[in-house]
């Protein structure tokens, strides 16, 4: 084995590695990049596969808001996702205190039930949920969506907050009990402030879950004024079924995705910090 051959192999390996990195970067980023580029093109430029919008225009963005109540749509999604998240966090924080801090018979059963609800297919409750939503007079209303979204966000937030709650030190609670604090005071006065970062992260994930939901929003709303973002984007149509206004579809996609990507970039630090905390650097 000569040293020369070794170093050539090393260089080739290094080169291959960076090629792989470039390929991964291209694969994950290009579709989003292409959506942005397409949203800035109009007229015949849209139909040319040019990598850059040579004559960028915001015409598509203006058209999205002109052709349909898109501002209303975004507001709808914000309202529904926020309410579902806040309601879930409230109910889940209380439940997580019981599940994470107290040993009682039936605890494992409750946890398993919550896990199963988060796993079973949404479509499996579709007709029953339809009946419930309509029976309560909530069909084609945002309240109906908030109610149905709890099936997604509530098990998730309960499960995650239980895990966070378990990690809090027992001494805190014992000291508070000796001082005669009630369980409610322990939860609200001591645990929840300590868990603020976890609550924020869990809330953000629940928010994304509700923001992205499609099946219930498609089935339980009728009029354009009650639509949420995914439904509005899925149902954007053109003059004929074969002529979708792609520039506008891409503009709408970029509008609703940019804030989400920004949020996840912020959250990413938290995720990565959590993931790398226990890592040993070699």
């Amino acid at each position: 084995m000569s040293a020369g051959r070794h170093s050539i192999m090393r260089i080739a390996g290094r080169f291959g590695f960076y090629l792989l990195v470039a390929a991964i970067l291209f694969y994950t980023v290009f579709p989003f990049y292409w959506a942005i580029v397409s949203s800035l093109k109009s007229g015949s430029a849209l139909f040319e596969a040019e990598l850059l919008p040579w004559d960028p225009t915001f015409e598509n963005y203006a058209a999205v808001f002109r052709d349909q109540p898109f501002a209303r749509t975004i507001a709808n999604s914000l309202i529904v996702a926020t309410l579902a998240t806040v309601l879930s966090l409230l109910l889940a924080a209380s439940a997580a205190f019981a599940l994470g801090r107290i040993r009682f018979r039936g605890r494992t059963t409750v946890l398993l039930a919550i896990l199963s609800v988060s796993m079973f297919p949404q479509v499996a409750v579709l007709s029953g949920m339809f009946e419930l939503v309509r029976g309560l007079g909530l069909y084609n209303s945002l309240a109906g969506l908030v109610l149905s979204y709890l099936i997604l966000t509530l098990p998730f937030t309960t499960w995650v907050l239980t895990a966070f709650m378990r990690e809090l030190p027992a001494e805190l609670e014992e000291a508070a009990i000796v001082d005669g604090a009630s369980s409610w005071r322990i939860l609200v006065g001591i645990f929840l402030p300590l868990m603020a970062p976890s609550l924020a992260a869990t809330g953000l994930l629940a928010f994304i879950l509700a923001w992205n939901e499609f099946l219930f929003a498609l089935t339980f709303t009728l009029s354009p004024e009650q639509r949420t973002v995914p439904v509005a984007i899925a149902l954007i149509s053109g003059a004929s079924a074969y002529e979708l206004p792609w520039g506008r579809v891409m503009a709408a996609s970029v509008i609703v995705t940019l804030p989400l990507v920004a949020l996840v970039m912020l959250l990413q630090r938290r995720i990565v910090a959590g993931l790398t905390a226990g890592a040993i650097k070699g």
């Binding site: 994950t28 989003f32 292409w34 499609f214 984007i233 996609s253 995705t257 990507v261 949020l263 996840v264």
Partner: peptide, 17 residues
């Protein structure tokens, strides 16, 4: 961060893209 982008995009939007 780049790898997280597809994860952050709503399914409906990524299907349209």
């Amino acid at each position: 961060a780049a790898v997280l982008i597809p994860w952050a995009i709503p399914t409906v939007v990524s299907a349209k893209m």
